[in-house]
């Protein structure tokens, strides 16, 4: 398969248009299954009662917030290294969804923290580094739109994305490096300390988050392609009667 064929905005626009609805549909199905298992099948937690159910949205959102930043930085690196237009557009398309998941992780963490820790917010290492991640996303978006020439914005934002990658291991290892309010990981490649239904719900919700993030990114990159390629013949022809 010639992957460079899909690096053309015109080709990728059509491919993204065909794929995005399927990813949104898969996200809805995974979310419905995850919520069912999480709220109906999973038992009440012995220590936290019902409030632990926030975990089914909090943990997938936190995972996605870090993973999407990494993806955004990889696209930024590709755009800087090979000067590929589509990579820069993809980095821009990933950023708002990454910021959304970071916001959800922080918000749900606050509403989980209040009944369990007694406070909505503490300057705990994990929470603070996650907040820095949100500011990095905002910085990326602001920097990308700060230039009249979008290609200059792409390069500046890609550089910021690459520098910000240093924050990802800080978030991940913060619970080991510092004495924080956060507990250590309940799930690892070696096993889990969770009830099986709790784990199933969390994984289903994570799959929903993945599918949603891909669907939203593909949908957004289509709009970015239209904005950037507005003067090309294929976009004119598409607007005249295409999908």
């Amino acid at each position: 398969m010639n992957w460079f064929y899909f690096a053309s905005p015109a080709t990728f626009y059509r491919l993204a248009g065909r794929l995005a609805p399927w990813f949104f549909a898969a996200a809805a199905l995974f979310a419905a299954a995850g919520l069912y298992v999480g709220f109906v099948v999973a038992p009440t937690d012995a220590q936290q009662g019902e409030v632990y159910r926030v975990i089914f949205i909090h943990v997938p959102a936190a995972w996605m917030s870090m993973f999407l930043y990494f993806v955004m930085a990889v696209y930024g690196a590709l755009s800087l290294s090979f000067n590929t237009r589509l990579s820069a557009m993809m980095a821009r398309a990933v950023a708002p969804t990454g910021a959304l998941f970071t916001f959800i992780a922080l918000w749900t963490g606050a509403f989980w923290g209040r009944p369990t820790w007694g406070t909505y917010w503490a300057w705990d290492a994990r929470m603070t580094s996650e907040l820095v991640l949100l500011f990095l996303y905002f910085g990326f978006l602001a920097l990308a739109s700060a230039f009249e020439d979008p290609r200059r914005g792409d390069r500046a934002a890609a550089l910021l994305a690459l520098i910000g990658v240093v924050n990802l291991p800080i978030i991940y290892f913060s619970v080991k490096w510092w004495n924080t309010l956060h507990q250590g990981s309940s799930v690892s490649f070696r096993g889990t300390s969770m009830h099986v239904a709790m784990l199933q719900s969390m994984l289903l919700m994570s799959a929903a988050a993945w599918m949603y993030a891909i669907g939203a990114t593909l949908t957004r990159v289509r709009a970015i392609i239209l904005e950037r390629e507005v003067r090309t013949h294929w976009v004119r022809a598409l607007a005249a009667g295409g999908p």
């Binding site: 159910r53 926030v54 959304l100 916001f103 959800i104 749900t108 989980w112 009944p115």
Partner: peptide
């Protein structure tokens, strides 16, 4: 303590954000 409020606020805000 009733925790429904905290669970509802978490999922509600996430749904609104999406």
């Amino acid at each position: 303590m009733n925790h429904d409020y905290f669970v509802a606020m978490s999922y509600g805000a996430a749904a609104v954000a999406v």
